[in-house]
Amino acid sequence: MPAARVPIPPRLRRRAERQYLIVRAFNRRRALKPVVNRTAQIRKGHILAFVTMRNERVRLPYFLDYYRKLGVDHFLFVNNNSDDGSGQYLAAQPDVSLWWTNASYKRSRFGMDWLNRLLMKYGHGHWCLTVDPDEFLVYPHCDSRPLAALTGWLDASQRRSFPAMLLDMYPRGNIEDETYEAGTDPFRIASWFDPANYMISKNAYYGNLWIQGGPRTREFFTMDPLAGPALNKIPLVKWHWRYAYVSSTHMLLPCHLNLVYDESGGEQASGCLLHAKFLSVFAQKSAEELDRRQHYANSKEYKAYHAGLRRGTGLWCSESRQYSDWRQLEDLGLISRGNWA
């Protein structure tokens, strides 16, 4: 029997994959040029945020503001060759460490190699939040309890990861109708979402749930829903240097970190990442990203958006709901407090 035909147990395959990802991340260490390194400020028990971004200057002020209020202690940014002044802005922030790179986003597994590298080096032993600049974490009781309360409770419950599904938010009218101003709350404009339009299946190999749906699938991918964007995310993890994100923050290895759901009928605690992608800045960005061709699956998503949005279709429909607070999301069954009373 040829060696290639010998079945390899999934456990070993996953382990090999994880080790490959770690080595790969380690090899990217020289691709990242430190601009400002304030990681000496990090103390034991601090909550860290890891972000990779390109040309997001407009979104950054509110992003930093939002997460500082939640209780993130330090931000670690990778600036992928921005030319709109994001780098200068971030370098001036007192709680930001900044790296710069001009390597290919696509060939760094859509930035995950860079973040895995930073997580490995600085995240070990900390609760780490890995998000994009247009993702805003909402969790049960987030209006009255800071992030440290959540991580403290997760620690006490001996859980190391916390799921937060991506919830696409969109404005009522056309995306270009209202211009987004830096520093303002994007969800004043994009305050609508799809309440129940989500499809779930289980990934047997990695053990995570694969969630699709939402306005993007409903409008742009009805002909091929399997190609639609994945919405399941696990952004908050108590990091260990041996962990690795596999594909964006959708899943991790080792796979016990992906088991953030209950299979015997109960509910575990979960949150949402409100996705402020569909703002006035989006149309221009999607044209630019199409030119760069650096996105997932040959930028299929961006092509679809661009075609769809040129037709002038908004994402709003009569069944959309307007966002009010986390309680609304919990009643709808998008998030759950689990047993965090």
């Binding site: 299979e263 069954g333 998030i335």
Partner: peptide, 9 residues
């Protein structure tokens, strides 16, 4: 309810 943190067998 079938959601990200409740997916019963």
């Amino acid at each position: 309810l079938y959601m990200q943190s409740r997916f019963p067998r």
